[in-house]
Amino acid sequence: MPTSVLVAYGTTNGSTAQIAEAVAEVLRKEGLTADLLPAGSVADVRPYGAVVLGGGLYAGRWHRDARRFLSRHGRHLAKRPLWFFSSGPLDASASERDIPPVRGVRRAMVRLDARGHVTFGGCLEEGAKGRIARAIVRNGKGGDFRDFTAIEEWAARIADELLKERAEN
């Protein structure tokens, strides 16, 4: 049974990091130990009993750091409970319906036997990094579409599943 959970994320402008922070906070409130780290800084996942990995979506792909995390740690991720989340739609669509994972994430889910995935709305606001991101904001298509209630409910379901497994063992 997991004694600690790693919540890792790949982000460019910080929106995905804030979602990961909310996930880690809920896991801690539910009684689990949760470490929050940028995906690019994780040297080893073996100390963790479970992993939650999130990535921002850019042009239909997961953030580079999240993809590299999967490549570096895939062998060890397959041996522990694993969940994924994506953030990205700059509209209300993620709150209105289930958005399936992008192709690369879907393949990783199958390969690593991930327990679940959810797509949350994204956030792109003034000061965003990148030419395309700045153009999106300048054209009025940015905004904050994250639903922190839905994020917290999803994290609570993960905590519940892990705590039930702990009680059974």
Rank of each mutant, 00 (worst) to 15 (best):
S93I: 14
H117F: 15
Y48P: 05
G88V: 15
A135I: 14
H76W: 15
R28P: 12
G142C: 13
G140L: 10
C123G: 07
W83R: 01
L90V: 11
F145K: 09
L6N: 00
A128W: 01
L163E: 03
W62I: 06
L162Q: 02
G140R: 03
G31K: 05
L124R: 12
G60C: 11
A156C: 08
L163Y: 09
A8W: 11
R75I: 08
C123L: 11
G55I: 13
V105E: 06
I136H: 04
W83C: 10
G60Q: 12
A156S: 14
S15M: 12
T3G: 15
N139T: 13
R166T: 12
P38L: 02
Y58S: 06
Y9C: 01
V110L: 13
G31R: 03
V52Q: 02
V137I: 12
P89S: 00
E153P: 05
P101M: 03
L53R: 12
R68I: 12
C123R: 14
M1Y: 12
G121I: 14
A114G: 02
D65I: 08
A128K: 10
L162H: 06
L36H: 03
A20T: 08
I19E: 05
T3C: 13
T16W: 05
G116I: 03
G121A: 06
L112F: 09
Y48L: 13
A8Y: 14
T11E: 00
I136A: 03
R166M: 12
G10Y: 01
A17P: 03
P100E: 15
G88C: 12
P101A: 13
S86D: 10
R138C: 06
D147S: 00
A156E: 05
R157M: 09
L27M: 04
F145A: 06
E126Q: 15
L57W: 01
A22I: 13
F69D: 08
L27V: 14
D147R: 00
R166F: 06
L6M: 05
V5A: 02
A43E: 02
W83G: 12
A8H: 08
V7Q: 00
I132W: 05
N13T: 14
R72I: 00
C123V: 08
R72V: 01
L32W: 02
K29G: 13
D91A: 11
P81R: 01
A114P: 04
C123F: 04
L36A: 07
A59M: 14
R111Y: 15
R67C: 11
G10L: 03
M109H: 07
E96Y: 11
V26G: 02
T12A: 03
E161Y: 08
D35F: 15
K141P: 04
E21D: 14
G88T: 12
G49T: 11
T119G: 04
I19T: 06
R106P: 07
A156I: 09
W154K: 00
S87W: 10
